[in-house]
Nucleic acid binder design. Structure first.
Lengths: 263, 263
DNA sequence: CGTTATCTTGATACGCCTCAACGCAGGTGG
DNA sequence: CCACCTGCGTTGAGGCGTATCAAGATAACG
């Protein structure tokens, strides 16, 4: 069985549609070289021309903004299996840095692979669009969180969302998960100081809402938190009904015969 | 000359690549029926299945989040020529509402048109991906603004960004522009109360930084503001170097012969 | 075993929200 | 024409939430 160490991107995208052999092979080919990255390694630098998109095979990566006053901010966290670089495709120089938050590995999907993908695998192109769309929704929630919640809600929302996303990446884990972020970094992600993050976490602990054995968190009051911040897990389903049908290489434009293939 | 009332989407996308006759016709066909919308009209409702993407032909539209405590929030503003609905494609139910902020018109591009687009016009697919990518960057800036700036900077940044985007949409206007938003709505967009927005605007006026003749704003101190909040206009250029080459309908997979066509 | 990051806790300051009241314009019905 | 209403802008007084500052305790690390 060679399927065990199948492509990370394939396993990710297969959650949404069942890929054809052809599509599978194409993707596997594209991400065949895997690059190990140490914590702190810059993936995309400020102003870089990105070399394409990448699949985060293992580890966490974060998008950072460098603010004039020195304190940087975390705009987005990428978890294993997610696709990095979709936001960088559109403009010729990156507006934000992307850095490995833990040790891990990425599979670069070179820029010049995109043209063949678009030409020969329209359904994969649709998947990229759909993934970018989910990224946008994640960012909207982030903005909504920053703009309308107080510190307590922000922190709860942040932890809930992290847990939910980890559950997608690494199916079926419970309320306990690893958070490889310092309190200062959590603060950077939700717009608080490390000091206040600490005070909030501490108060959650004394009230029995969470348990922390660094770097592991356990959400003891998850249900009530989810109710309190109106948490909805927006990433469970993808709409694939508009996707074109998978086509054999020669066949051209089956157009409206497109049919959803979500499992 | 029939080119005067050419497709809105065509003129928008032509800013980035020079479209072929074939692509032009395809787009024009897709957005042939234009729908006039009155201010306040819902474009996408909460939980809706979106009927596809749309081009905002004229007027403003806003993305709103309804928070539990009743006060809604503005997550994104769409200006004339921009594409609405890319964020909604990926999930089967919309997480946020989209509403017309002024009278205007939209051109729906139906969901079932996407499959033919992806199959037959890979370069247009690339454009959609690129536009979605720029949307993500806009949202990141929004999040960065909410998470790290104080009220004064937020308001300045908001106005600067609005001006810059209007300049793209409606080439070459100066420092004066129309803002069809109440002070309360501005507050919803940048996470402040209407009262504080008012106090800030008023202080800008007495210090001679802006002039307001509702609904028109004039930024008198634009340069110094741009320096103060480190404003960068991230939407002036699009990277099209990775796009596939425009293909004639029959021709298949020219692959690596792809060459940029930005003008 | 020193050195540095990270966490912890308290005292204090201040930015922005809240509440409350009023002005002003536009619209509506008498 | 006026009386009323409703939405938006304006202004002030007071309070709360979170940042800031300072200092120590603990944990990570060479």
């Amino acid at each position: 069985m060679d399927h065990n160490h199948q492509s990370c991107l394939v396993s990710r995208l297969s959650q949404f549609v069942s890929l054809t052999e052809d599509e599978r092979n194409f993707l596997a080919e594209m991400e065949k070289n895997e690059i190990a990255c140490r914590k702190g390694r810059p993936i995309v630098g400020l102003g870089d021309v990105t070399e394409g998109i990448m699949v985060l095979k293992s580890g966490w990566a974060v998008v950072k903004a460098d603010n004039p006053d020195g304190r940087s901010q975390i705009l987005r966290i990428y978890l294993p299996g997610e696709i990095i670089g979709l936001a960088e495709l559109g403009s010729s120089h990156a507006s934000h840095r992307i850095v490995m938050q833990t040790d891990g590995a990425i599979c670069p999907f070179p820029r010049k692979g995109l043209a063949p993908l678009l030409n020969d695998h329209p359904r994969l192109a649709a998947l990229l669009i759909a993934v970018g769309s989910l990224d946008q929704i994640a960012l909207r929630y982030q903005a909504s969180c920053l703009g309308s919640m107080d510190a307590t809600q922000r922190l709860k929302f942040f932890l809930l969302q992290l847990r939910a996303r980890l559950e997608v990446a690494n199916v079926g884990l419970g309320n306990r998960f690893r958070v490889p972020l310092s309190q200062a970094e959590i603060g950077q992600a939700i717009g608080l100081t490390s000091i206040y993050v600490n005070k909030l976490l501490r108060s959650f602990m004394t009230s029995g809402e969470i348990e922390i054995e660094r770097p592991y968190f356990r959400l003891l009051a998850r249900k009530s938190w989810e109710a309190e911040v109106r948490f909805v897990n927006a990433f469970v389903d993808m709409d694939t009904s508009w996707f074109p049908a998978a086509v054999a290489p020669d066949q051209a434009s089956p157009a409206s015969s497109a049919e959803p293939q979500n499992d």
